[in-house]
């Protein structure tokens, strides 16, 4: 299983409308609810925001990876989101965030899924991949960024 297998066009928002932390997380959760991956929207939102309370997932360099582990999630999934204007996400470097990966994981995940997520996290530390993601305009571009 590779990163590509977990990135789905139906779970991508290439033009985020939200303009603050709370609303961007809400917007990113929406496709998961539509696809039936998240059962209780409110509960999962709280899980993600609680994680943010502990320490922000805005890792700087324009990237944020809100995430949550909850029994309300049926399959491990990633929602990709991109904001043209950038969103203030309490990032470590204080700059606005443009690229979002919302990671949703069920309480009892299979190891192979978790491995893919750890790979994704590692790849995001690579500046080339980040540059490709920032320039991506289509779902395909996003998926190809990880080649």
């Amino acid at each position: 299983m590779e990163i590509k297998d977990i990135l789905k066009p139906s779970l991508m928002i290439l033009d985020l409308k939200a303009n603050n932390k709370a609303s961007v997380v809400e917007e990113l959760i929406k496709p998961l609810v539509v696809e039936g991956i998240v059962k209780e929207e409110k509960v999962f939102l709280k899980v993600v925001m609680d994680r943010e309370e502990q320490s922000t997932t805005g890792i700087g360099m324009g990237i944020a990876i809100p995430h949550g582990k909850s029994s309300m999630v049926t399959t491990p999934s990633i929602v990709f989101g991109k904001s043209k204007t950038g969103i203030e996400y309490e990032a470590l470097d204080g700059k606005p965030s443009h690229i979002f990966f919302l990671i949703a994981v069920p309480e009892d995940s299979k190891e192979e899924h978790l491995k893919v997520l750890s790979q994704l996290s590692r790849k995001l530390m690579n500046s080339e991949i980040r540059a490709k993601l920032l320039n991506a305009t289509t779902a395909e571009d996003v998926i190809n960024s990880f080649d």
């Binding site: 994680r51 502990q54 990876i65 990671i103 994981v105 997520l117 750890s118 790979q119 690579n126």
Partner: peptide, 17 residues
């Protein structure tokens, strides 16, 4: 890190690179 999903691996990658 608390959930062990993302930061653990990003920090590892950052230090390694």
């Amino acid at each position: 890190c608390p959930t062990g999903i993302a930061h653990t691996y990003m920090a590892a990658e950052a230090l390694e690179s």
